[in-house]
Design a protein around this nucleic acid. Structure first.
Lengths: 172, 172
DNA sequence: AGCATATGATTGACGCGTCAATCAAATTTG
DNA sequence: CAAATTTGATTGACGCGTCAATCATATGCT
């Protein structure tokens, strides 16, 4: 049951069918559309981009509501350069702050400002509602089960070593 | 069987569960990772971005290998502004050409250059192989069936009126 | 100690995507 | 027909994301 790649080997020689390709395209198109809709909605409702939201979420969940830059990058699974750029923009808007790290003079500690925390709180409920309306309400419990399984399969395929479940579980 | 929204109404009052939210996040994360991997691979293999590829694909499939700007925008499902910007960059690289439209002096006709056609041909096989390796090889036929059904469900939810299947079918 | 290398983080350049504004040609309408 | 509106398409500004380069501090090695 946990033998992750016998499928890979079994299919290794076959060519991809046009049906499989169509499903791939449909997956890309549909998720892109959902992200577009939900991202635009989030921005209208709260003035936050999805990226802003991800950063504020990670900081909100962090002990002491503060993280080292590198921890934050790991939490949101971004390249550090991307994070630096984005933190610069968020700092300019007053959503977060960067202070020198006491234990490592190279490091930065990122924390929520009062404004950032407030905006995040205000964004949460409408955003969850939008996800529910546009995504969750469409699927039956069986479909959720099936989708969760497929995503686990895909993750196992992309990261064969780790024992699956969510990325958060192994945020070393 | 084709009653598209009884699910919507049935679930309308419930709150979204944390499990459903986790599946949504997993969907976003996993598809983002796949796009990132395949996009980077495509670029390395062929010098084309996914956006370039989409444009060249649409033009390759078009009658006479040329399309009006607006038709092209519809074919790739982009905003016209995005297309304009992207065509500008592609034109500068010599991948496509824009000529005045004979029947409507406002319009532009976009066509493949020889270079563009050649690069597209060279990109096709490795790109399909990468999709196969990273995505298609992971899933069983049953999982493909299930995923296709879920995507149909989601599309029906987003566009209730149309009779589903793929977007291409009704590219009026 | 002194030098090499690792690491934490930022920067600049550049392609990308969205929004609002613009422009010109076509169509509608009084 | 002339003014108003609609349509096809482009532009500019700005935020975003990636890559390669950079910088400063910390760590490892001899």
């Amino acid at each position: 049951m946990s033998d992750g790649d016998h499928v890979t080997r079994a299919a290794a020689r076959r060519r991809m069918s046009v049906g499989e390709l169509a499903i791939w395209r449909s997956l890309v198109d549909t998720t892109a559309e959902l992200r577009r809709i939900l991202g635009a909605q989030l921005l209208r409702d709260s003035g936050l981009s999805p990226a802003d939201y991800a950063v504020l979420l990670a900081l909100s969940e962090a002990r002491g509501r503060r993280l080292r830059s590198s921890e934050l990058a790991a939490a949101v699974d971004w390249e550090r350069s991307r994070l630096s750029h984005h933190l610069g923009r968020m700092e300019k808007r007053g959503l977060i702050r960067r202070d020198d790290c006491p234990t490592d003079s190279r490091g930065a500690e990122v924390s929520l400002t009062e404004d950032g925390a407030r905006m995040f709180r205000g964004a949460t409920a409408p955003h969850a509602l939008a996800i529910k309306k546009n995504f969750a309400d469409a699927l039956t419990p069986e479909e959720f089960e099936a989708l969760a399984g497929i995503l686990r399969t895909l993750q196992n395929h992309l990261h064969p070593e780790q024992t699956s479940t969510s990325r958060e579980d192994l945020h070393v």
